[in-house]
């Protein structure tokens, strides 16, 4: 499973309903970040403070990731991870729908038409097989509550869980404060993860600044 699929799975409960509603800014950037971090883990791209570089344009065989890889390969200008996050966040709906289709194809989710539901529109995606999701949760817990050195994939998934606000769902009220220092330490370790969190925080800050204080009467 790739990181886009993993984070979507974590965002849904066994009945296919969203566990948390991260809000469009967080979700868009998390999906963009997941795609880029996965391509980096597969040695298709590399990053530093000023550039995101294509290393290998060979397709991964996973349509969503390959769509992103093709876009990077086709780009004529050099950009950094921040620019790519923002560019991909704009088409996160396409990434999300593609990854959900892949999870259905893999037999992990099934699609059922129901009413309501948040960013997943009017459909539910109940889990056919919850093992994959449970394995990710166990891995995250073992990294957060030990001093073990995380592997790069753990770093990526913890950054994504943190960005989408899933931590408060995964951890109890008692465990959450204990884990925060470790979460902050781990999410610094990946440049794309850092840029993703920073982009979300910057946008949310701008939105908050633009909102009138509670009770204020807007100027007409």
């Amino acid at each position: 499973m790739n990181l886009v699929q993993e984070i979507l799975l974590l965002l849904l409960d066994d009945e296919g309903a969203p566990v948390v509603a991260p809000g469009p800014v967080r979700l868009d950037h998390a999906l963009a970040g997941a795609a880029l971090m996965d391509l980096a883990l597969r040695n298709r791209i590399d990053t530093d403070a000023t550039n995101l570089l294509l290393l290998d344009a060979t397709p991964t065989g996973e349509p969503v990731l390959d769509g992103v890889l093709e876009e990077i390969a086709a780009s004529e200008e050099r950009s950094d991870a921040k620019v790519w996050l923002s560019r991909l966040a704009e088409r996160s709906q396409e990434i999300r729908e593609g990854a959900l289709a892949e999870l259905i194809e893999l037999g992990i989710l099934e699609e059922k038409n129901k009413r309501i539901l948040w960013v997943f529109g009017s459909r539910r995606y109940p889990a056919v097989d919850g093992r994959a999701e449970r394995e990710v949760k166990l891995r995250v817990m073992s990294v957060l509550f030990s001093d073990e050195i995380p592997d790069p994939r753990d770093v990526a998934i913890i950054s994504l869980i943190s960005a989408t606000g899933l931590l408060s769902e995964l951890l109890s009220k008692h465990d959450l404060p204990r884990a925060m220092e470790r979460v902050q330490q781990i999410r610094k370790m990946d440049l794309i993860g850092r840029e993703m969190v920073s982009a979300i925080q910057n946008i949310e800050k701008v939105v908050l600044t633009a909102m009138p204080p509670m009770g204020a009467v807007p100027h007409m």
Partner: peptide, 8 residues
Amino acid sequence: SAGLRVIL
């Protein structure tokens, strides 16, 4: 980043 990952 790839260099840092290999150290990790």
